[in-house]
Design a protein around this nucleic acid. Structure first.
Lengths: 203, 203
DNA sequence: CGGGAATCCGAATTGAATCCGAACAAACAG
DNA sequence: CTGTTTGTTCGGATTCAATTCGGATTCCCG
């Protein structure tokens, strides 16, 4: 049963372990990331690690929460500005921000993401999906003509998942055949044309 | 150094091991899939497993090849018919076929796919991506008006990755909020409107 | 048949994950 | 201050899965 850290010293320990988790993942990949490794990098002993984490997986879960929290911290302040933009600009802003976040710290979040399906198999992207679905709703509220669009949940699902996963996959690619700008422009065009097309169909 | 099976008996062993890999993955997930487990399910000893596979990961790679081969075997015969269809019908045909394939055998391929990022981090989808890119090219050849479209590689990248990953993610979802038909229709609309919009822009 | 190659086996080895009890540090009451 | 309680850290002991290895068994060709 893992303990919750009370004293600041312990909180520092927990934090160091999570940091070390990202470091080790970047350096050695999943296979090479052992508890001893993490503990060494964190400057504590394995025993200490198991004081606060029931098992190795929980360390990865904590890393996951860090990442999600940062994404939320990025998107939420942007939201008021985003909902007033043209759709193409919104997508551009969002995806560039997303890329920068993922590549921060030698791509620690990106690296983590490519293994996330293993560590957090169930719904690991759900909070982010909800965040973006909320952004979409806010956007529709600020652009009432969009309310005429048909199946908003399905549209949102496709745009969010298609967009997020395509960008993730793109950024993980060792030598991509297209540029990130092209990708972002293409995604923007795709969504913009789709919206126009659907609105035209309504008439 | 793994040996290549020569006698039919050995080929059966190799096959049983790969089959057992899928079974074990379905039953016990990644964590629960041990070499002993696979060997037991295959009705052979661990030692035999290591005769033909250098390590556990190679078993997963063999499973991967099985899956990719089946996808190719599904798409290639469909191609001549697909390239003559309306874009929406093509997408519908392709995605329903894809779903059926993934859900065959109690979803063994789907189950495998959700862990694939871990086992085959580098380029594990590349053959499928190439297959679909080729389909796209053939399609453009049969619909010459599409040749006026702008950045085909980027478009293809987005449609293929966005489509494949969205469907994969959707099928892995325990209780999806939208129906598969809606998803397929939405993807079809998205692509169709995009094509129309781009063609209109060219004028 | 007889012998060498191919196949199969499962106990032994190895190394990582996890547990645990003792040692050390902080907080705090009297 | 000082004894006690509670929180924290440590690293060796244990457990379990991956992989190895030497020998037993089966196949197949001459």
């Amino acid at each position: 049963m893992p303990r919750t850290p009370r004293q600041p010293r312990a909180k520092a320990t927990v934090n160091a372990i999570v940091e070390a988790g990202f470091l080790s993942l970047s350096e050695h990949g999943v296979q090479g990331t052992t508890t001893r490794h993490i503990a060494d990098l964190a400057g504590v002993s394995v025993g200490s690690l198991y004081e606060y984490f029931a098992n190795k997986e929980e360390v990865f879960e904590a890393m996951h929460h860090h990442m999600v929290a940062e994404v939320v911290a990025m998107v939420e302040p942007m939201t008021p500005a985003l909902v007033r933009m043209e759709i193409r600009d919104l997508i551009k802003e969002l995806l560039f921000g997303f890329r920068d976040l993922l590549e921060k710290n030698q791509g620690r979040y990106l690296r983590y993401m490519s293994y996330a399906a293993y560590f957090a198999p169930r719904n690991h992207m759900e909070p982010i999906q909800r965040l973006l679905m909320n952004l979409l709703l806010q956007y529709v509220i600020h652009h009432p003509q969009l309310a005429r669009l048909g199946n908003l949940p399905a549209m949102g699902y496709i745009m969010i998942n298609g967009g997020v996963f395509t960008v993730l996959r793109y950024l993980s690619e060792p030598n991509p055949t297209i540029g990130f700008e092209e990708l972002v422009k293409g995604l923007g065009d795709m969504v913009a044309h789709f919206v126009e097309g659907e609105l035209r169909k309504e008439d």
